[in-house]
Design a protein around this nucleic acid. Sequence first.
DNA 1: AATGAATGAGCTTTCATTCAT
DNA 2: TATGAATGAAAGCTCATTCAT
Lengths: 210, 210, 210, 210
Amino acid sequence: MKTRDRILLVSLDLFNRDGIAQVSTLIIATEMGISPGNLYYHFRGKDEIIATLVTELQNSLVTISNEYPKQVKDFDDYWPFMHTIMALFTHYRFLFRNLDNLNGQSPQIKRKIRTLILKLRHLSSEMLAHLISLGKLKCDEKSLPLLADNLLLVSLNWLNYQTLLDDKYSETELIRAGVLRLISMVEPYLTESADSPFYTHQDLLDELVS
Amino acid sequence: MKTRDRILLVSLDLFNRDGIAQVSTLIIATEMGISPGNLYYHFRGKDEIIATLVTELQNSLVTISNEYPKQVKDFDDYWPFMHTIMALFTHYRFLFRNLDNLNGQSPQIKRKIRTLILKLRHLSSEMLAHLISLGKLKCDEKSLPLLADNLLLVSLNWLNYQTLLDDKYSETELIRAGVLRLISMVEPYLTESADSPFYTHQDLLDELVS
Amino acid sequence: MKTRDRILLVSLDLFNRDGIAQVSTLIIATEMGISPGNLYYHFRGKDEIIATLVTELQNSLVTISNEYPKQVKDFDDYWPFMHTIMALFTHYRFLFRNLDNLNGQSPQIKRKIRTLILKLRHLSSEMLAHLISLGKLKCDEKSLPLLADNLLLVSLNWLNYQTLLDDKYSETELIRAGVLRLISMVEPYLTESADSPFYTHQDLLDELVS
Amino acid sequence: MKTRDRILLVSLDLFNRDGIAQVSTLIIATEMGISPGNLYYHFRGKDEIIATLVTELQNSLVTISNEYPKQVKDFDDYWPFMHTIMALFTHYRFLFRNLDNLNGQSPQIKRKIRTLILKLRHLSSEMLAHLISLGKLKCDEKSLPLLADNLLLVSLNWLNYQTLLDDKYSETELIRAGVLRLISMVEPYLTESADSPFYTHQDLLDELVS
DNA sequence: AATGAATGAGCTTTCATTCAT
DNA sequence: TATGAATGAAAGCTCATTCAT
């Protein structure tokens, strides 16, 4: 793998594990076994690494958004689709853990994140509207935007919340439990049960969610 | 006011405004017009200031928890009570914006936060159980813990989410909108309407929430 | 002596000896036996040290300029006066050796130097005009500003020129030889000899100047 | 043009514009559109580029020195000759703006510059002696070496002095004004007027010089 | 001839913290 | 209680230079 890509990979891992503020460029370089100068040959600095990671996420989300109308035609398509999104949030979870530090980060990064969240908000609304048009969801107009936001809020913060309380679960377990959590938020508005072959209530998940 | 208390006050303000990482001990001292040495006479360091602020919040929450059974007897008592809690979260909002940095902070602080959130989780469950016992809420046993967590997740993160997207609203407006958001999460499970003299849907809130 | 003043003193010495670019803040601190942090406690950085030194020189020159009409009444007062100025140039000679680096330095410093030189230019003209009014100098109007500039040019650059060719002479010797050089530039325009008890042509100077 | 020559050309331009310290090898390579490695294939380093430029100047001066007796036979030949020299100083002006950095540069370069200046000093004396032998100049033996040095000092530093104060003039204007300045230094010692068809006092020069 | 990734020393600067007064 | 000079570790970053290809 190219050094540039390895830098992104290792940085993402370290950011997720220790937090942006705790990871210096020297730590990244040492962890990779390259010189600090080499890191600065590939990226102008820490900010550019973060910005690139945000762009990566953005691109993935754009791809997913574009595929949404094709992949999600029926009710049963929703859960695998949300699984994909939740996996993405998990992969880049460091970003949603430090809305604080974004205050101190470069305005460029802050703007990128804002745009990202606005797009996600739009996607969330779109999905709910689609469910209503499919006749699967029943929700008054006042509550709809609230529900859309709440779903996003929980998606973005669930992981760090859960990990803070108990970090014994694997990424895969966390992703599945997160989606179940979202299902539970939508369930009261559904016109039929949300059980699907994709998301059966297994014992593990029962335990994790409770 | 005693210097020690002023340090806490000023630190809280600065942490909320700029984030922990952006506020150095020198900035705090300068802002207060005292010497850095004096700050270290009153606190062993920055971590101790943060830890003390967490303790403050903890104490407030303990008080509120204890008053809960006395203050909240009936259905209508809920919203003013939740308003109080939401105001508290707003007051110490830097803590929940900062789960990233807490990862790197002293284990002592991390532990404190964990305990805090566990207590809040307990309080959230307790409140829902109480509502059920009052016959106001209807929720199966599986969904109950999920709902409790979701309420907490939204409470803790709503402020930073909203502020990131649009920072034109005042603290008071944000608190009220936050409570409304919580109401909307509970509403589908209620056996009667949530409208109360305390939380009428005013035009302002309509706009803010949408 | 206060640390702040010692920093200025040591920096001046090092700048004069090795040149601004060759002297890092760490070198200054190490040379003084203080920590790098302490240096930054007293000055915001290298630029501020340089700027302060320029201000020092500026102040000295303002004082001298103000004293000029009082001290220099007669022809014989000129040479000791120019000796004072030349000593000042020698003391801060690093400044006039690196008009190059000023290009890269902060615009604030560049502006200061510009102002400084403009003031010196004015002083140079003023002195020549005074000599003419005393009937000691005879010079047509066209040549006067040229002469004034040339005097300044030689004053400022003489030291580094001489040191580059041969650095065996002491500061005192260099100052005296520099003044003699200036005298030699004015001499052809004088109505009487420039010999004075203050600046007799000693053997040493003869040798140095040739 | 060969790469090697282009490196010298571009380096000279950049050194003159921004100063040695401000121009990194990477900047040179990027400006030329070649790789940093390639630059080091042609030169052992930055110092060698500078040293080569000094050698270039040296060679030009040797050529000029050799041509001096042939080209300068009469009084009127002087000004075009000095124009040539002044143009050379302008072309390599970064060298004389930079006596500071030379202090820190390799001893090799420092030695080269010393030799260069000693040669120029010799040329300056030689020219004055020639003028005397032509009966055009009258100057006692004591003042002669002083005058020779002063001419050189002004030649070398005039450009940076003028540019610092006001950078609106073109190279050609500066060269002409510089020569006029030298003429004004010699004029008091001349037995006849210095006016020549080559160096008439035009309005432009009048303004520039004043 | 030329590329461009890689090195590593060194620079400026910040900051939590200590300590003599 | 309070001051403020001093510390030293660590951060971000630059740059002349090397070297395998």
